[in-house]
């Protein structure tokens, strides 16, 4: 089992529905978020390309946050999901510094570090992550890369894709179709 998220940047309209769905589903403290939208304008007029995409924790295979955690609170579970155990986290911030995607934040009340969990609690019930399930343009896909017939495997086989900051050597598991 190797969970991955595939996001079609050609279909994303940047509506932020995924952000709101995540905040609602995961009870994210006000003013914080576990996923966000970026809008990238590339080139100069008249050759301008606009790219919208939803970003979050990349659940890296070679996760620097797990490596640098002094207590083992950051860990990888079956399926490659990177999680934080709140009552093992001392809030030292090493993982926040180590993340090339700045996907982590310190929970303002709990003091522990919080981030996207790929909605692990929903996956256990056989549901899709909240952000994927609400996307109005169906630009987000979620599935198992070890299964060659899953939607995500077939998309990555047939379409051009990229990952974010691959030069950081983290082997991210969120793929962007381009």
């Amino acid at each position: 089992m190797r969970y991955a998220m595939v996001i079609d940047t050609l279909k994303c309209v940047g509506c932020s529905d995924c952000v709101v769905a995540c905040q609602t589903e995961n009870d994210v403290p006000v003013g914080y978020c576990r996923d966000w939208i970026t809008e990238t304008v590339d080139g100069s007029y008249p050759n301008v390309v606009l790219e919208l995409k939803s970003e979050r924790c990349n659940h890296c295979e070679n996760a620097p946050c797990v490596r640098c955690c002094p207590t083992g609170a950051s860990h990888i579970i079956d399926g490659g999901i990177v999680l934080v155990t709140p009552n093992e986290c001392i809030g030292c911030g090493a993982c926040i510094e180590s993340c090339p995607y700045d996907a982590r934040y310190s929970h303002p009340e709990g003091g522990y570090v919080d981030k996207c969990t790929f909605c692990n609690h929903r996956l256990e019930k056989g549901q899709l992550p909240a952000c994927v399930s609400v996307c109005p343009t169906n630009c987000m896909y979620f599935g198992d890369l070890d299964n060659p017939n899953s939607k995500v495997s077939r998309l990555l086989k047939n379409r051009k894709y990229k990952t974010l900051a691959p030069e950081a050597g983290t082997k991210p598991q969120v793929y962007y179709l381009i």
Partner: peptide, 23 residues
């Protein structure tokens, strides 16, 4: 030239300062 604008999330004042975690 590349220009990146954070539509939601990173332009919320609570997010970016909290990334600078070491004082």
């Amino acid at each position: 030239m590349q220009e990146e604008i954070f539509v939601s999330g990173r332009d919320i004042p609570n997010i970016d300062p909290s990334l600078e975690i070491w004082h």
